[in-house]
Simulated scan of single mutants.
Amino acid sequence: MDERLRRLRAVLASQKFPAERWELLAAAEFYGADARTRAELRAIPVGRYSTIAQVAEAARVVARSAAESQTPGDGRPGVRPDLSATDDVSRPIVM
């Protein structure tokens, strides 16, 4: 069993399914879920989930999508292109 599913099963053990996303969030808060599990539940799409496995799959898809969107085209995670050549640092910031 993967770690995400294990955590979700512990937190949502008493949750009746099917359940809406807001119900899952409320159950996690009531249970005292760790920050990572709460963040994963907040990230899943609004909707009705039939099983804990379906919740875990939605969280996995969201996490994978987020990781892929932060990886630049050259495949190096977390490395941003040098934008200094296009930044105009001579203009003052006006608020």
Results as ranks from 00 to 15, higher is better:
S50R: 14
G78P: 04
G32S: 07
L5K: 13
R4V: 14
L8K: 04
A58G: 06
A27E: 13
S69Q: 11
R48S: 08
V46C: 05
R42Q: 12
P81D: 05
R48Y: 01
P72R: 11
V46Y: 08
I93V: 09
F30T: 13
I52P: 01
P18M: 06
W22K: 12
P77V: 08
S84I: 00
E20K: 15
K16I: 14
T86H: 01
L25D: 03
A10P: 01
F17I: 03
K16R: 12
A27V: 10
T51V: 06
E20N: 06
I52Y: 01
R80L: 11
V79A: 14
R38D: 03
E3A: 15
A33S: 09
R36G: 15
V61M: 04
D74R: 03
P77K: 04
Y49P: 12
P81Y: 00
L24R: 04
R38L: 13
L41E: 01
A26C: 01
A27D: 15
T86D: 00
Q54L: 05
V46P: 11
A58W: 03
M1H: 11
S69C: 04
R4C: 11
S65H: 12
V61H: 02
A33N: 13
W22Y: 13
A66E: 11
R9E: 08
Q70L: 12
R60P: 00
Y31P: 02
M95K: 15
D74W: 03
A67C: 12
A43D: 10
R64A: 09
L83S: 07
A10W: 02
I93Y: 10
M95P: 02
V94W: 09
L8A: 09
A35M: 04
E20L: 12
A33I: 10
L41M: 06
G78C: 08
A33C: 09
P18G: 06
T37M: 07
R38C: 04
Y49Q: 08
I93G: 05
E23F: 02
A85M: 01
M95G: 07
A66F: 04
R42K: 13
R7V: 03
R9F: 04
R76A: 15
V89G: 02
M95A: 12
T37A: 14
V55C: 09
E23P: 00
P72Q: 03
D74F: 07
Y31R: 14
R42W: 06
A39H: 05
R38A: 06
A33T: 07
D34A: 11
A59M: 08
S65G: 08
Y49S: 08
D2W: 00
R64T: 08
R6E: 10
Y31Q: 10
A66Y: 01
P92V: 10
E23M: 11
R21N: 02
S69P: 00
V11P: 05
I52H: 00
D34I: 09
E40D: 12
L8W: 04
D2Y: 01
A13W: 01
A63G: 00
R6C: 08
W22P: 00
Y31C: 15
S69T: 13
D82C: 11
E29S: 13
R21S: 05
A13H: 11
P72T: 06
T71Y: 00
E40S: 05
A33F: 02
Y49V: 05
D74S: 05
G78E: 06
E68R: 15
D87W: 15
A53N: 13
L12E: 10
A53I: 03
V62G: 00
S50K: 14
G47S: 02
A56I: 11
A56V: 07
